[in-house]
Design a protein around this nucleic acid. Structure first.
Lengths: 140, 140
DNA sequence: ATCTGTGCAAATAGTTTGCATCCTC
DNA sequence: GAGGATGCAAACTATTTGCACAGAT
């Protein structure tokens, strides 16, 4: 069962009805393996009201089916929670390109911090900023 | 020489004049060891226009005297760049409290990623989310 | 005296809310 | 048929921009 199907089931279980807007947002997110902004979703789904996009994202977030990705402060992006597909991002400071990566050493280091911290850590984000190979080549 | 003095010198070197707004914003940031939002700065400096706060922060960021801290997506905070004072943050998902921490193991893991990545990594952010001891005590 | 820096107010951008209507159950 | 879901438009919040004037050099 792919992510979109699973998301629909979970929403149904949670007592939500299935309308057109929600279905389309979920399907779009399911097709996208990396982060998408709310406005991009809105742009790509002209028949869906902007408010519905935000409402759906909020519900999905609460059900832990998607999570927020902060990639610069201006805009917030969302991406689906793939079980076992935990990853972080590198963002190109020139062109804004977002590239996912994952690294066991990094996860271990973060776990170690969580173990000795006073906070009860439940989630973490890592964002590496730099210049992507493409932008690096073409000058500068 | 403290951070505020240094910041003023660097601005002067860069050809900026020293007006009242910039001075006050810089002094406030110098007194604050952790992140402050633009709006908080504006609130705490009633005689300074909001626009000047944002303009100053932008200039300071370009001169690498402050850097952005994304702590949840809604608001962006800024904090001074202390040479050698590199750190990250834990944010409490209940009360929003922001606590700085630093960890050599984490830094090492990130350096290792940078060494083998295709991106030329120039900066990184880590944000740990969880529940702070205070909120954890007073019942869930 | 010149030209940058500043404050104010208006403009923008992203997100949220109110509400009448549509559609699922 | 009832109540949640949706789209539209208006409200809000954070940030940016335009502009006349004050102030630094």
């Amino acid at each position: 069962m792919d992510w979109a199907e699973q998301a629909k089931s979970r929403l149904e279980e949670a007592g939500f009805r299935t309308g057109a807007a929600r279905r389309q947002v979920i399907e779009l997110l399911g097709d996208e393996s990396c982060a998408v902004t709310a406005l991009e979703i809105d742009r790509r789904l002209p028949r869906v009201g902007r408010a519905s996009v935000y409402r759906t994202l909020e519900q999905l977030e609460q059900l832990e089916l998607v999570h927020r990705v902060d990639v610069g402060g201006e805009v917030v992006a969302f991406e689906r929670n793939d079980p076992g597909g935990h990853h972080h991002h590198m963002v190109c400071v020139r062109c804004g390109r977002l590239v996912p990566f994952s690294d066991p050493g990094l996860e271990r280091a973060i776990e170690a911090i969580g173990a000795k911290a006073e906070f009860e850590i439940t989630a973490h984000d890592v964002l590496l900023r730099g210049v992507c190979p493409r932008c690096s080549e073409r000058g500068n």
